[in-house]
Design a protein around this nucleic acid. Structure first.
Lengths: 142, 142
DNA sequence: ACGAACTAGTTCAATACCGTACCATCTGAG
DNA sequence: CTCAGATGGTACGGTATTGAACTAGTTCGT
């Protein structure tokens, strides 16, 4: 292969870290810690703590904490799931949706500052490639 | 724009998180915590703690801890910088270089499992685009 | 040659994080 | 049914992380 995968990974990681760091102050203004933001942004797609833990690759115990904080801040609430009484269905409040959208907006704005340097076609390319990379993981070759 | 920057960021972040998580066990086998690995991999480029903190976007206090651990494990040592006696020049030991290369190899292997699903041309494209994105940050538009 | 202001790195106390043990509910085999 | 084994979520306690204060060394203006 002509491309060093480790370097590619590191490069990419640096990019995301810098962008996230750059908008962490704005997230804080919205009353969100970085980790809490991830949870808030994912709840609509994965409305149960166990799902969140899997999707975000964080421990269940941590999800408990972030959800507790987000509930305390009025961004979401827990509801008992009728079909399975063990589950807590997480529901965003209106405030939560506003905060989430603003937070995503801040992230987008910051990332756009970077994306603005490349041509539109490359954005589409990047999206297409990343989507392909996130397809279900192939079998290990070893 | 036709591409949602926030979604793109999130997508990408998820990808990197999954890949890193997948090889964290291998890193552990090498005697490396994830954060320590980042430091180990960056030392050759940024041989001073302050530089590491800036490059990796982590607090100075954390660098102190990771360097302490890496020194204790025999992966690097501190030397006093002749030109500036406040500075600690960090030098990789042979063991450290071996561990770093193996760790990067593990990361590459894991990322390659993903990259293998896309055509070679897209790898090159991805690299080109990411490199462009990491160019010095443009001025804020606001 | 002095000291104020600065930078490199560390320490320490406080907080964040999360492995593990736990309880409640669910599922399904007998 | 009923119990054993899963699964969802939380609580507790120990480790990891880090902001703030600190020490050491440097720089520069006078």
């Amino acid at each position: 292969m002509s491309v060093d995968a480790a370097q590619l990974w590191t490069l990419n990681h640096r990019l995301l870290t810098v962008v996230l760091d750059a908008c962490s102050a704005e997230l804080a203004d919205l009353g969100l810690e970085t980790k809490e933001f991830f949870v808030l942004a994912e709840v609509a797609t994965s409305p149960y703590p166990a799902e969140l833990a899997t999707a975000l690759v964080i421990p269940k115990a941590s999800v408990t904490v972030y959800v507790r904080n987000l509930v305390a801040k009025g961004f979401m609430r827990r509801e008992i799931d009728d079909a399975d009484l063990r589950r807590h269905r997480l529901v965003l409040t209106d405030e939560g949706e506003v905060a989430r959208d603003r937070a995503l907006g801040a992230l987008a704005k910051e990332f756009d500052r970077r994306l603005a340097t490349i041509v539109p076609r490359d954005r589409t390319e990047l999206q297409r490639i990343l989507l392909a990379l996130l397809e279900p993981a192939p079998q290990a070759t070893s």
